[in-house]
Design a protein around this nucleic acid. Sequence first.
DNA 1: CAGAAAGACTTAAACGTTTAAACTTTTTAC
DNA 2: GTAAAAAGTTTAAACGTTTAAGTCTTTCTG
Lengths: 332, 332
Amino acid sequence: MKKTQRRNRPTLQDIAREAGVSAATVSYVLNGTGSVSAAVQKRVRDTAKAVGYRVNHVARATRTGQTLSIGLILPDLSNPFFPELAQAVQSAAREAGYAVFLVDSEGTVETERDSADDLIRRGVEGIVWCPATEHDSLEEFRGDVPIVVVDRPLPNYDTISSDHYAGGALVADQVLALGHSHIAIVAGPQSLSRARQRRQGFVERIGDRAVIDWEVENPFTITLSDATQAKLRDNAATVIVCGNDFIALGVMRALHELGRNIPEDVSVIGFDDILWARHSIPGLATVRQPLTALGKEASALLIRRIMGDEAPVVNMSLATDVIVRGSLHAAN
Amino acid sequence: MKKTQRRNRPTLQDIAREAGVSAATVSYVLNGTGSVSAAVQKRVRDTAKAVGYRVNHVARATRTGQTLSIGLILPDLSNPFFPELAQAVQSAAREAGYAVFLVDSEGTVETERDSADDLIRRGVEGIVWCPATEHDSLEEFRGDVPIVVVDRPLPNYDTISSDHYAGGALVADQVLALGHSHIAIVAGPQSLSRARQRRQGFVERIGDRAVIDWEVENPFTITLSDATQAKLRDNAATVIVCGNDFIALGVMRALHELGRNIPEDVSVIGFDDILWARHSIPGLATVRQPLTALGKEASALLIRRIMGDEAPVVNMSLATDVIVRGSLHAAN
DNA sequence: CAGAAAGACTTAAACGTTTAAACTTTTTAC
DNA sequence: GTAAAAAGTTTAAACGTTTAAGTCTTTCTG
């Protein structure tokens, strides 16, 4: 299929001709570089406006080598965790004059790799990346362009993530403060570092100040494994600490079906504060990840790197907050 | 701050020099255009691989005028409706070789306008746009680049949206089939065309086959207005038809607090099938919008336009499906 | 075996900017 | 009133590609 010619946009040359000056002068005026007399400035600006001039960013980029764009590679937009992150990255980038190419890697390392390759061809000056797996699929690009990893620490990369360990400890503090002494844990997959850290932060803070009645591992989904469901049936703990909000909501649902009352019979607490945590019945107590700050910091750090900041690899972790809601009650 | 020089990437010239041919030949080889002897082809390809050549897409774009990129402007990524749409647009675009600039307009027409302006400077070949308001804030750009509006019909634009009217009618069919004769409506804001259409599709299909006990308007949020809550307190209808899932979930919560059982005492049905509809207790019956199809079609149509398809303005609406879940029951 | 056609490759222009360097005019300094 | 400095403007090269046109060589065709 042949592409039809759109209205050819006016160029610097067009303005130059119209205003009776050279293209260079027009460029100097429009960019505020160089010194140009007031009269010519006005003439140029007026004709630029008159013809509806818009700079051709692509042409500029070939000359300057700066595209003022970055890439954002996420594993799965339909996971409610990521849109807020994407929003923050995009808005911080925009404020710095950068545009964002969005890629949903669909959770595969191949797509991650191919997309990064494509993005670099397109001249992005940096990439914010949330890896789909623990595999370093962008290794080969590290020399080409700065890459900031977000949410999931990966060795050798600048990383911005929530302090999952401290978050777990916060949950422990809260649970202890409410007088719970019999605790159950439905942890996330311990193959994932964030799940491990959350659990560890919790368990270590609990120490011997309470008993962990039982513990089980469950995928980060609202659907519970048979093992988890079995544990719930026999549960005698007064609080169930979950690896994330999906699990927690699944647990709440299961408990509901088992006829247990939340929080009278048993408390539940999650992790992430996804949108629906506040809307469940009762509201789900949880740990809020600073998603917006995460995105902002990732953008900011990436742009510092782009600007040439050569500091050693940064590993930034951001504090989390416990959000107390109806699902969490004092032990009786 | 001074930008440090990243490793200068090898260019066509570098390969040409290395392989002892002209840059043109290298281009011909790598693009598969032109005719080049097998020997030279191999030599060129080998050196290209050896030096780790990647085409400079920006330079190519200045010459060809094609950036192979599109823009996607959405009002609010944190609304769970949009990520799935974004995902579909991006993935369809990628399959066609296009990359996607994502912009969250934060619901303001100024950001919409400014972003579109910026995107066009950046040479996007088209824009998929979900308008934040009913205001045509991109009017001035219509001549510059094809624009496809998604989800919210706007005159003079190619539009892809769900068939809200038909969806409303489907709800009516379902409700009638289950024998309900006393109906309540919590419609969305009737200033919004999609809310209007849903309501109208429903009401017209109901006709005189059932009574509409009461009706109220509520914002598209889970928080219910005082008026809505008052109506719910006195409700005697056997089914409550809601303008979207947020409203429906709010209604379910309110009914729960009023001690009404769903669906034994009263059924509830929503619209959109957001992620949480299936996870509420009971599951929320609703109408599924084909978000993925919506995004795919939008991408596809936009790319057709980019390719020069000059057909008159298209107004495509996609069929919806009723999803029956626990919140909807036969009338007793 | 001559002429034409095809094949292989190079040259050079073009895309729309930016920017260093050159040139011209005006201002400043003494 | 002249030399030097500053201000204003133009020229031309450069960014890394693509591609039309040109050149040279080989292969066909009759």
